[in-house]
């Protein structure tokens, strides 16, 4: 629990622009009116909680979870780990983290993905876990492949893993993508480029974490996620002026 205070206002300049002609689909799906801004209310300050009973033993192991441990997925074995924190620097414990990704060839197991790279019969592409008491999480998976997508004439997505994080308040809800250190496609990706502030985009790029890699087994990548925080003050929940 990270308290029940009001949420800090979202710093919108950190986030992607809503409409970007280089990401063509965004043009017809971006609101044109300004958002209605207001102090958070209990509707945003509370949120769903998920218990450990939800999580199966292989849920955070994408190498094995599609076959229930029968056969491993093809690809470069990696461990992705990090912490979920809030803006105050406190860990966000026991919160649900979900990921999804393409297989090693850049193909998603989804009815709408028609890329001709083959499906891996041993790879589904989804995983989930709860953070521990210190906000830590980890996944074992394979490095997803880059893939082409219909946008401009020759656009390719860099290798990436999608992350969905809940926090403890519905107003903290966040979906983002993790990129990999050194991928030359990041700088050419119109979706990554919707984040205008380069330093904020850099925070979506996970570094190789060799010290947390396991010799003769997997490489590690570290990816920390920061959610909105809450104001911590005695001067809350009182009528104005009191």
């Amino acid at each position: 629990m990270t308290g029940t205070g009001r949420l800090m206002p979202r710093r919108r300049e950190v986030h992607p622009v809503a409409s970007d002609p280089d990401y063509k689909t965004s043009v017809s799906r971006a609101p044109t009116w300004p958002l209605l801004s207001m102090e958070s209310t209990p509707s945003e300050e509370t949120g769903p909680r998920f218990g450990h009973s939800l999580i199966g033993p292989l849920d955070n192991n994408l190498i094995l979870n599609f076959t229930q441990g029968q056969a491993p997925a093809v690809g470069e074995r990696i461990r992705v780990h990090g912490r979920v924190l809030d803006e105050t620097g406190r860990p966000v414990p026991h919160t649900l983290v979900e990921i999804w990704q393409a297989n090693a060839g850049g193909r998603y197991r989804h009815v709408k993905d028609t890329y001709f790279a083959p499906l891996d019969p041993n790879f589904g592409g989804c995983g989930r876990t709860l953070t521990d008491g210190e906000g830590r999480y980890e996944f074992l998976t394979i490095r997803p492949g880059a893939y082409p997508w219909p946008n401009r004439a020759n656009d390719w997505r860099p290798m990436h893993i999608h992350f969905s994080v809940f926090g403890h308040a519905f107003g903290q809800r966040l979906i983002t993508q993790m990129y990999f250190e050194g991928d030359p496609l990041i700088a050419r990706c119109p979706i990554a480029a919707t984040v205008r502030d380069r330093s904020q985009l850099d925070r979506l790029v996970a570094p190789l974490d060799l010290q947390n890699s396991r010799p003769m087994d997997y490489l590690a990548y570290k990816f920390d996620i920061v959610l909105r925080g809450r104001r911590q003050t005695m001067f809350e929940n009182k009528p104005q002026g009191m």
């Binding site: 979202r10 710093r11 986030h15 105050t88 197991r109 979906i175 920061v226």
Partner: peptide, 22 residues
């Protein structure tokens, strides 16, 4: 001011169902 900055959002993309509604 020793606050962290929220992680930037990225689109959920067309395959969001894989992770959220398999």
């Amino acid at each position: 001011i020793d606050l962290l900055v929220e992680t930037a959002s990225q689109t959920a993309g067309p395959y969001v169902h894989i992770g959220c509604i398999p």
